[in-house]
Design a protein around this nucleic acid. Structure first.
Lengths: 117, 117, 117, 117
DNA sequence: GTGGTCTAGACCACC
DNA sequence: GTGGTCTAGACCACA
């Protein structure tokens, strides 16, 4: 796994987990990888993964069964969407559109990329 | 001037300068504010502004006349676009489109925002 | 460590590091001293060392593992030579030879010094 | 005239003048260009040229006739050589030779450049 | 522990 | 006045 340097690693991991939940690769009520397992897989310090899990737990997206592991909450997808949609629409989209205009990038290019995902 | 906390201040200042160049508020071959001047205006330490200027100078977007000040390069807009377009199209747009899909945000919403800028 | 006053300290530190790499005192893929460590060793402000490291990182000569430290790039020696050889041969050598002639210094004197290194 | 940025402009001008004296382009007892004249020719602030002249005057290489201008001293070449030879041989040559060795540059390359001047 | 950023304040050379 | 460098000291995120 590669990380961008303008964002903290633990947040990028959290995003990665959210993505897996939204795409249902990691589905509700199933156990997600242990801290050590994920850490060794993506070659990162276990503390860093722990931090991502703690953050998501605070947000209610995953929960912990002592001695067993972390699990995806029942309404995880819904919570993620609620958490991100508003700021996304109100803040990130306008900023993004503005940058596109400044760089002379047409709506077409974006539409193609959107449909290609 | 207000700063977001998920990005470094000096990069936000650099972006701010690029924006001023792209919108031609600061035009080619004209002097831009001195380090101290801009620093006091946006209430930031001169060293921080200096860092932004140095970065932009390294990129060839502005240049320096000894003892006089910084000036916008002739082809600054072009360089900014070249610098940002590629990573923007190849990396940021796909990521952004992907997030939109995950959050169930339709293309319509984006188009409206784009036209509203 | 002593510094000449006609050159900036941070560039002299960068040169010092390059020299250590070229002479293989600091070898590829090994960790180099931390910013604070080197700073206290050569009695300089950590910011100054940081600046040297950043410069060398921009040039690709060293790289950083987050939270761990700086490391010598695999092809560091090659990069240093590429970086310095061209300007050295095309610009510094002719200038130097010219000054020698102007000062009536014979090639012999230089050859002796060269062999004595 | 182009200036290197790792050296002060007024010293580069002083070197330029010394060169002209050593090569006898500006010969002894002849008037050298006025401060303003040289300044406009090499596109530099007159203060900067004045500084170079003052420096050379302090060293005794040129002298001033009030209201008339600056002149090359009779023994200017000799003074320049005396001023520069010692530090050149004792300090600059060894440093230069050392850098050449580190960059794997052979004596041959230097010799060719020396003869080509 | 590591790097990274920022502030405050100083000094210098140059224009 | 201008940029450029350096110090001292602080705080933060990350491992």
């Amino acid at each position: 796994m590669e990380f961008k340097k303008n964002q903290t690693i633990y947040m990028q991991i959290a995003d990665f987990i959210c993505e897996n939940i939204l795409t249902e690769k990691w589905s509700s009520a199933n156990k997600i990888p242990s801290v050590r397992e994920l850490a060794s897989k993506i070659e990162v310090n276990p503390n860093t993964v722990m931090r991502s899990y703690s953050y998501l737990q605070d947000e209610g997206i995953i929960y912990n069964k002592r001695g067993i592991g972390f699990f995806v909450s029942d309404d995880a997808s819904k919570m993620i969407k609620e958490l991100q949609r508003q700021t996304f629409i109100e803040s990130e989209i306008p900023d993004f559109a503005k940058r596109m205009k400044l760089l002379d990038i047409s709506l077409n290019i974006f539409e193609k990329a959107f449909k290609a995902v």
